[in-house]
Nucleic acid binder design. Sequence first.
DNA 1: CATGAATGAGAATTCATTCAT
DNA 2: TATGAATGAATTCTCATTCAT
Lengths: 208, 208, 208, 208
Amino acid sequence: MTPSPERRGELLATAAEVFAAQGYNATTVRRIADEAGMLAGSLYYHFDSKESMLDEILTTFLDELWARYDAVLAAGLDPRRTIEALVTESFREIDRHRAAVAIYQKESRHLAAQPRFGYLTDSQRKFEEAWLGTLERGVAAKVFRADLDIRLTYRFVRDTVWVAASWYRPGGAHSPEEIARQYLSMVLDGIAVREAPPTPAPPPEHSP
Amino acid sequence: MTPSPERRGELLATAAEVFAAQGYNATTVRRIADEAGMLAGSLYYHFDSKESMLDEILTTFLDELWARYDAVLAAGLDPRRTIEALVTESFREIDRHRAAVAIYQKESRHLAAQPRFGYLTDSQRKFEEAWLGTLERGVAAKVFRADLDIRLTYRFVRDTVWVAASWYRPGGAHSPEEIARQYLSMVLDGIAVREAPPTPAPPPEHSP
Amino acid sequence: MTPSPERRGELLATAAEVFAAQGYNATTVRRIADEAGMLAGSLYYHFDSKESMLDEILTTFLDELWARYDAVLAAGLDPRRTIEALVTESFREIDRHRAAVAIYQKESRHLAAQPRFGYLTDSQRKFEEAWLGTLERGVAAKVFRADLDIRLTYRFVRDTVWVAASWYRPGGAHSPEEIARQYLSMVLDGIAVREAPPTPAPPPEHSP
Amino acid sequence: MTPSPERRGELLATAAEVFAAQGYNATTVRRIADEAGMLAGSLYYHFDSKESMLDEILTTFLDELWARYDAVLAAGLDPRRTIEALVTESFREIDRHRAAVAIYQKESRHLAAQPRFGYLTDSQRKFEEAWLGTLERGVAAKVFRADLDIRLTYRFVRDTVWVAASWYRPGGAHSPEEIARQYLSMVLDGIAVREAPPTPAPPPEHSP
DNA sequence: CATGAATGAGAATTCATTCAT
DNA sequence: TATGAATGAATTCTCATTCAT
């Protein structure tokens, strides 16, 4: 009944690429089929509908993302290390599922209105809990600044990370981990040079 | 045959709202007309096509944005003040043209492929020149960190600001200027508490 | 919002004709549009879907039928007169809505499974109540035979009348009332010549 | 390449069931295959096409029906006994081939237009000859009423019998012979109680 | 200015059918 | 004999657009 999972996987990857490039609505089934080297109707042997392709792309991505996020959250790290781990996992996820992440970014808002995609809202809620909660713990622990609107901070960090999916290309100059490191550095310490009191021992990798 | 500009303006605002909420492709002309209290066909008295509405929304927004950006860039501020001014103007623009900015964010990438929307690519190039140039001057002047990939920094700042259009609602808790101030604070100084060098005179408002 | 009722009415009549002739499933929207002198897509200005055309055809017919049936049932006639009136009204209805009746005959069974057409089941139940109830009263009053299975009798009478829609053509040799009269005569008295009690005065034309 | 006839028979029975339940057009080959526990494509090892299944179902039914009808007609019975025998054989046929009969009822009219199903028209003609001829002989022999339109009577008897296929379920309360007996009683003698002593004055409208 | 009624070019989807394995 | 994976034509439906009134 369920045709071979490998073929499905290939086709989904193709579809995700096109959805990400052109937008879900602007993508025709025929275009996906062309890209996959088959006729439009043939896709329906593997999938119920264009929408179910989108659905499967998003759930696959979210399932994997949450598996990793949950592992991080269960590790009992301090707030700063938690944020670092979440950001790093996020960039790894962008590396693995760039197309899916890009689709998520572009479409999730209006998809969430449909019952079928209700899980997007759920995921978003869990997301907020995880990130916002960690930030709040960090503020309480005095490792994150208390003088900033915490929700603004949350959005700042969240968006900052995920929009990267819109320009990231796997196999580029930087590994996901390197990008994560630099982004974390920017998010945590800012892009401005720290004026005054010369840090006694600057971190070796930043020294000239 | 030359319909009143005010009516056009209202209709464009309506259209922009719907485009932003549902995406350009997913928005039907009929939906816009419904929202405007007329029939779909009637819109064609005012506009040539759905695409020309989108075009006009985007050019109006970009024209205004560039008027402000150009003023900032012509003012001859130092790199840090320039960045601060650009960020502030950006948030003001989001405040004024939230829908247009959101549309720009979502659609510009794939629209840029069409000749009609070639100006989007031009604008993007000018954009990069302005921001990246300022950042580079800042690095040279040692006011921005030199240990970061400059293009990564550029994307970080750029995205960080503009994605705000996706959650910003005019008339919310914070003014655009206040949001700009906080964002700048995060971008420039980071969200982490500066450990070590006990600031000689802590800002009064943060003291107990 | 609801386009002119006259046009709808014409289009529905056209659609009913085609549905009756070819069957609902075998009828393409394009065929209906051809018959109506327009393009397939144009029908969707007037109707939501092919199914909603069918729906409207059936409800219009059933509403009218029940208005008449209810009038008959409310008249308080004796069982035999009630049956006569119901049969007569049925043939009149076939005369007025031949296509709708034919569609009803052919499609109602499998349509009834869909929620949208649940009213078909309701109607069928009311139908059975009306006819079966009348027959039972007639048996009790000794005007209808008691030696027959009453449900068999019900089906016999019911089918006998309604299948006529499959061959009836308005404007034929017999008026609906004439057909009703002959059918009633057959149903009530049978087609066999009454043997036994030697009719004292046989009609002259049958004598040798 | 010559698949076993038994398997064909089973598959045809399955197909007939589904055709009868949902209508020929509304039945997908896949549905039949599901019901038979195989995949859609596999049916094509046994049959040329969906249409050829329908064809075989109908010819099988008609061949058997005509074998029995011909036997009856060849027996040289008097008109009344002939009608009784035809009706009885018809109900037996409904018992044996309910699905096929139901399909015939629903689809024969529009199928008859296609050359491939021309035999349906032929059969219908033979049918009319047999029944109408018998009725005419009966009228001539004064065993059937002469005051009725003979074609109306023909349709009445014909439809009355065959529509039973739409509600008949084999193995129900009554045997086919019992149903035939009751139907014949109704058709021949009517459902009204005979008002005892021979009607002294025949209904005026039938007198000369 | 706006309406009502179309047009016509796709869009997604369905489904009978084919065929190599 | 049956499966799995297609094909390709047809079908329903959508929607931007036109245009007479």
